[in-house]
Amino acid sequence: MNESLKVIRWVSLSGAVFCIVVILVGVATRLMDAGLGCPDWPGCYGRLVVPDHATAAEYSSQPLEPVKAWMEMIHRYLASALGLWVLVINALAWRQRSAFPAVMRWSLALLGMVLLQGAFGAWTVTLQLWPQVVTAHLLGGLTCLSLFFAVWLSSRQRSGEQNNESGSLRFAVAALMGVLILQLALGGWTSSNYAGTGCVGFPKCNGEWWPAMDVSEGFHLTQTIGPHYLYGQLHAEARTAIHFAHRLNAVLLGVLLLVAYWLAHRRASAAQQPLGWMMSVYLVQVALGAILVTQGMPLVVALLHTAGAVALLLLGWWSLLLTPQLAVASSRVSGRVSYE
């Protein structure tokens, strides 16, 4: 095997793991209300490291909170390191662009997404935690993770091979992925609007099966910017609408997961295994969600909930990859994708 391709595989896979770390540190920064720990970007009070109180006071009227400032800067340092990781992948992919053009395409897409993430990081601060930007920043991180996976996958797939279509199963898994992406977006919107406590109690919300909600305000995507969105600006019923939508979509996600798993089992598909793992992670996610709304949003549980969302995303892409590969009992499968 080409040595450069081996390196691309290792770098893309390890980059995906590092990307997960960056995502979780970013979520921790958000949960610790440290998103504005530094009032400027890319430095902190005009410095590349967190300064002392006297230096910070000379730069800005915003009081320095060292723990929050360091949390924000650590996230930036890690994100910058991830950017360098992506540059390495692109340099290696350029050397393989003729033999493996898909690797080059995905690597370029990853580079573009990382650059956009840098812009989102700046806008998060300059637009004072505007929920639209904060949510997009989270989804951008998950997109980067997905692209790392795509680079790794394309470096393993042999040239000239194609997938078979598998009808209803592939459609079911594709629909599952669409609803999962929507669920991730709703989770980000819930977090960025501080709507995690919009519903108290489980399975009921605020003691009701259908609570009072203000949907139009909760999903008003053209809201004005400022002065800042630390701790949120929406009233209680708007936050309830956001949280409740997240719960309803979770139910839909569970139904589609059951359908996809049943179809995979019926067709003896290779996708049955990752879909089975998805069901296990989904149940854990429901339990973690229940703990969050009944125990006052503990930080560790919130991070585990985010890690579960990342696991669902990766298992979902894996399931989508495997849906064309049906394990037919006769073993006479034509056009099956194979990997080195």
Rank of each mutant, 00 (worst) to 15 (best):
W130M: 06
W130P: 00
W130E: 11
W130L: 12
W130Q: 10
P131S: 06
P131D: 11
V133Y: 07
V133T: 05
V134K: 00
V134D: 02
V134R: 11
T135Q: 10
A136T: 10
A136V: 09
H137E: 01
H137Y: 01
L138S: 05
L139N: 05
L139F: 00
G140M: 04
G140E: 04
G140A: 06
G141C: 11
L142G: 08
T143L: 15
C144S: 15
L145D: 03
S146F: 05
L147D: 09
F149S: 07
A150G: 05
V151P: 04
W152Q: 07
W152D: 00
L153D: 04
S154L: 03
S155V: 00
R156D: 04
R156H: 13
Q157A: 13
Q157C: 09
R158Y: 07
G160A: 14
Q162H: 15
Q162M: 14
N163W: 14
N163H: 15
N163M: 14
N163E: 12
N163P: 13
N163K: 15
E165K: 15
E165I: 01
E165Y: 11
E165S: 10
S166G: 11
S168T: 09
S168L: 08
S168R: 14
R170D: 03
F171M: 02
F171T: 01
A172Y: 04
A174I: 07
A174K: 08
A174G: 05
A175R: 05
A175N: 11
L176H: 08
G178Q: 12
V179M: 07
V179Q: 04
V179E: 03
V179L: 12
V179P: 06
L180Q: 13
L180R: 14
I181N: 10
I181V: 15
L184F: 03
L184R: 05
L184T: 09
A185S: 11
A185M: 14
A185D: 05
L186N: 13
L186W: 04
L186D: 03
G187C: 06
G187L: 08
G187Y: 02
G188L: 05
G188M: 02
G188Y: 06
G188E: 00
W189M: 00
W189Y: 00
S191M: 04
S191T: 03
N193G: 06
N193K: 10
N193M: 04
Y194S: 06
Y194T: 01
Y194Q: 06
G196T: 01
G196F: 02
G198F: 07
C199I: 02
C199G: 05
C199Y: 07
G201C: 10
F202M: 08
P203D: 10
K204L: 13
K204G: 00
N206I: 11
N206D: 04
N206A: 10
G207E: 07
G207T: 05
E208C: 12
E208N: 14
E208Y: 12
W209L: 09
W209Q: 04
W210F: 12
W210K: 14
